[in-house]
Simulated scan of single mutants.
Amino acid sequence: MMETYYAAVYWGCRVESAEECARRAETFFRHLSRCDPDYARWFEQADSRKKALQLQFDPSAETFMRFFKKRGYRLGKVGFSFGAWTGHESRERGGVVSLTCGDDAVGAPNNCILDLPREKPGAERVLSVSVLTEVLRAMVLAWEPDWGVVTSEDFRDSLSQEGDVGTFVGWMTYFSRSRGEVPSLPAPVRMELVENRGTLVILSSERLTVANSEQLVLGRHIQDVLLAKGLLKPVALTVQ
């Protein structure tokens, strides 16, 4: 069965205005558009594919301000929720973004999630370290999250029965500076700084897959090391 990959970042309570969320959304889509040609155009989601294909939008701060004024994109008194897709007829070929921002995060963390392509030609281009590090960087620079990951659902489930955000490692895992200092890790693992925001841990230069037993062993080992250092903990939902 084909593995399903995704990139995601999460952060806890951060109540922000529509203006602030719109600015962050514009930054994210602008950076993301440089990662791969498939991310150059976006459509609102709708009840049918035919209707959604009529809803292409320019991902500017002004556009998101207009969206966030709509009742359907608001989360009660604070926070916003929004979804978009790349317009590919087959969902497996393009991408889908879902985000929750500006929320008090009482029930679930704020987040930005990108479902990655499963089929050629998009999967061949996108599912690589060179592209996905830039995707995760785009998320970090825009949303300033606490934690983030690029992984497959199967690999995640093999390392974590609960799958609680912040508690497991993936192909790539991001830790904000607020989580603490990431220790030196053995090869082939490598680390990259994301400006002054935090550290990106990359398990392998090859595509990570649950079918590779050596990658699973490495993932479990690195997860144990980071757990012992106090870096793997659930994303806090509210300010203590």
Rank of each mutant, 00 (worst) to 15 (best):
S48D: 14
K50W: 05
A61S: 14
R49W: 08
C35L: 06
A52P: 03
E62H: 03
R41D: 09
S48H: 05
D58A: 05
Y39D: 05
K51R: 12
L55I: 02
P37D: 15
R30D: 09
K50S: 12
R41N: 11
Q45C: 15
K51V: 02
L53R: 03
Y39F: 15
D58Y: 03
A40P: 06
K50A: 14
C35N: 04
R34P: 00
Q56S: 08
W42D: 10
S60D: 12
F57C: 08
D47K: 03
R34L: 04
R41C: 08
Q54H: 09
A40G: 14
H31Q: 13
W42F: 12
Y39M: 11
D38E: 11
A46R: 04
L55F: 06
R30F: 00
S48P: 04
P59I: 03
W42Q: 04
T63A: 15
Y39I: 05
P37C: 12
Q56W: 00
R30I: 03
E62F: 01
R41G: 04
Y39K: 06
R49C: 04
D58V: 02
D36H: 15
L55P: 14
L55T: 01
S33G: 13
P59S: 09
A61Y: 02
R34D: 09
E62N: 06
T63Y: 13
Y39G: 06
S33L: 10
S48E: 14
L32D: 07
Q54S: 10
W42V: 06
C35K: 05
L53S: 04
D38L: 15
Q45Y: 01
A52M: 03
Q45G: 10
R30Q: 09
A52L: 07
K51Y: 03
K51D: 06
F43P: 06
R34I: 00
A52K: 04
D58L: 03
R49V: 04
T63C: 10
A46T: 01
Q54D: 13
S33D: 02
A46Q: 07
S33M: 10
P37E: 15
P59C: 13
D38W: 01
E44L: 11
E62Y: 03
Q45K: 13
D58C: 06
A61C: 11
K50G: 07
L53G: 09
K51W: 01
Q56I: 01
E62D: 15
D58R: 11
Y39Q: 05
D36K: 01
A40D: 01
L32R: 04
S48A: 13
A52D: 06
C35W: 02
W42P: 09
Q54P: 02
Q56Y: 00
Q54G: 10
E44R: 13
P37W: 06
A40K: 12
Q56K: 14
S33H: 13
E62T: 08
A61T: 04
Q56F: 00
D58S: 10
A61D: 06
E44P: 07
R34E: 11
W42A: 08
H31L: 13
Q45E: 15
K51A: 07
P37V: 14
D47T: 02
Q45W: 00
C35M: 04
S60V: 01
L55R: 14
A46E: 09
R41W: 02
D58F: 02
H31C: 10
T63R: 10
D47Y: 01
D38G: 15
C35E: 08
E62A: 12
D36V: 01
Q56R: 11
F43L: 11
